[in-house]
């Protein structure tokens, strides 16, 4: 008989693995990906593919040649970073910019901290913010939705609803004026995704389907997305009620920009979000407040990326002070 194995208890394992969780998130992203292809056409495919492949490539190169250890690029995390980076950029972004973004996301956002599990900031957002600041023009010329036949580089461009709103308020228009004007495409379009914007800002419904799938697979819990939405509704709601002409209603906030994608896929990233339920709710509240503040009072039309990155920095502090409920 072979030698017996000896180990401390427990002797069985649930079978859960990093890959199962990561590929589960990818499956949850498929509806959003399909939607983005339907809305933005070939550009969506090129951008997504470039981002994913360059993330995988850079992770492989850094792990094999710089860190000199076995490459583990198929654990799913690099693919997710690539896809989420793609969802955060316009569909007409040149390939070379995407590659730079991938290099920053993987190299600086993830590997420089120590690889999987060691980064403080969400790598996709690190890449995205880097691109936004380095290539502001390319990163803010959003193609208009022309369905699957939307061109890639030569797509017609226009501003996102948030940008339009900010401009309108700047020029003195009131909120109600903007909502009834022609430049605003309507709530229904925002829900279904017929709006200009980044790939992932498209269909809110597609993202919500992904959310339900992740909850079912127990990949994430409801705490972070729900607390973000609730905070946004409450905070923006208070502002709106105080001055409906100045501040737009909370549902506009929920459906526009990267709110859905950010709350469900980016803020819930394992590595950069708190571990206890109490902590998760505080995290979500912080993101909600910061997003609304940046959107309403700040210079940028969209504040989700910055809000998440700022709260990522607070995660270790939240982990330290928000201990889970003890047994007794």
């Amino acid at each position: 008989m072979n030698k017996l194995f000896i180990s401390p208890s427990p002797h069985i394992h649930s079978g859960d693995s990093i890959e199962k969780n990561m590929y589960g998130v990818l499956i949850a992203l498929i509806p959003a990906l399909l939607c983005s292809i339907l809305l933005f056409g070939i550009g969506a495919i090129i951008v997504s593919l470039t981002a994913v492949l360059s993330c995988l490539f850079f992770e492989y190169m850094i792990q094999t040649f710089l860190l000199k250890k076995r490459a583990s690029i198929f654990d799913g995390s690099a693919i997710i970073t690539g896809l989420l980076l793609a969802f955060n950029v316009p569909s007409n972004l040149p390939v070379w910019i995407i590659i730079i973004g991938a290099l920053v996301a993987i190299g600086i956002g993830k590997m420089s901290f120590g690889g999987l599990g060691c980064n403080i900031f969400n790598p996709a957002l690190v890449g995205r913010v880097f691109l936004l600041i380095s290539f502001p023009v390319q990163m803010t010329t959003w193609p208009l939705v022309e369905g699957i036949s939307t061109a890639y580089i030569d797509a017609q461009t226009g501003a996102t609803p948030l940008a339009l709103l900010k401009e309108a308020l700047h020029t003195g228009q009131s909120v109600s004026d903007f909502l009834t004007s022609e430049t605003f495409i309507g709530y229904r379009s925002m829900l279904l995704g017929n709006i200009g914007g980044s790939l992932g800002e498209g269909s809110a419904i597609a993202i919500l389907i992904g959310f339900c799938y992740m909850l079912f697979r127990k990949i994430i819990t409801w705490h972070i997305p729900v607390s973000i939405f609730a905070t946004v509704i409450v905070f923006a709601g208070i502002l709106h009620l105080s001055n409906p002409d100045q501040f737009v209603d909370p549902f506009f906030h929920l459906l526009s920009g990267g709110m859905m994608l950010g709350a469900i896929f980016m803020a819930t990233d394992y590595v950069t979000s708190p571990m206890s339920q109490k902590g998760m709710i505080i995290f979500g509240v912080g993101i909600g407040i910061l997003t609304v503040v940046i959107r309403v009072f700040g210079a940028y039309p969209e504040g989700m990326s910055f809000a998440i990155l700022i709260m990522n920095a607070f995660t270790p502090l939240i982990n330290r002070y928000c201990k889970p409920t003890r047994f007794a």
């Binding site: 030698k3 017996l4 194995f5 000896i6 180990s7 401390p8």
Partner: peptide
């Protein structure tokens, strides 16, 4: 000669507290 295979965490302290050793 080895009489068993230890499969737990790679730490002598843990292995020692568990059993006689491999």
């Amino acid at each position: 000669p080895r009489t068993s295979q230890y499969d737990g965490a790679r730490s002598c302290a843990i292995q020692h507290s568990l059993y006689i050793g491999d």
